[in-house]
């Protein structure tokens, strides 16, 4: 019984591992490979900031577009038609404007928004179809400090 126990207890001595290829080396190689994989993976999965022109040139490719709400154009949100669709016009940082279909309910205080980041793609009709949107309001996190005498 005693002997048997010894036999089934596999203690892998280092002699079994070929010289120059210690277990720690294998681990190190695996670690480095996964780390590089993670770095490349995060670059590969990352999206791209673009202006509207660039997005229009590549319809169907996902971009982040930064811009502002064009307040002169109509914001259409008809919940009784679809509660998760908001249509509006955005002006990107180069000044180009574009009609946007956002697949979200109209956010609170959308009209007051200062800056929008749309995540989505352009379609063939020169419109932008946004899956999601980040919105910054003037006073939510930024400082509003205009005390005029």
């Amino acid at each position: 019984m005693e002997k048997n126990a010894d036999h089934t207890m596999p203690s892998y001595p280092n002699a079994q591992v070929p010289k120059g290829m210690k277990r720690s080396h294998i681990i190190a190689i695996v670690i480095i490979a996964v780390a590089i994989g993670a770095l490349v993976g995060s670059l590969y999965d990352s999206s791209t900031y673009a202006d509207l022109e660039q997005a229009m040139e590549n319809p169907g490719k996902e971009y982040h577009v930064v811009g502002t709400l064009d307040r002169s154009a109509e914001i259409v949100y008809e919940p009784s038609l679809n509660a998760s669709l908001t249509t509006f016009t955005m002006r990107d940082l180069t000044g180009k404007t574009c009609r946007v279909h956002l697949a979200k309910a109209k956010p609170q205080d959308f009209e007051r928004s200062e800056r929008l980041v749309l995540i989505g793609e352009a379609n063939e009709h020169g419109e932008f179809e946004a899956r999601d949107m980040l919105m910054k309001c003037p006073s939510k996190y930024n400082e509003e400090n205009k005390v005029n005498g």
């Binding site: 919940p79 009784s80 038609l81 679809n82 509660a83 998760s84 669709l85 279909h101 697949a103 979200k104 309910a105 989505g120 793609e121 379609n123 179809e129 899956r131």
Partner: peptide, 17 residues
């Protein structure tokens, strides 16, 4: 109830609101 968002874009979902 109403309009299907997927008419606009396959990636949109109808199941939020």
């Amino acid at each position: 109830r109403n309009m299907d968002l997927r008419f606009l874009n396959d990636g949109f979902n109808n199941s939020e609101d």
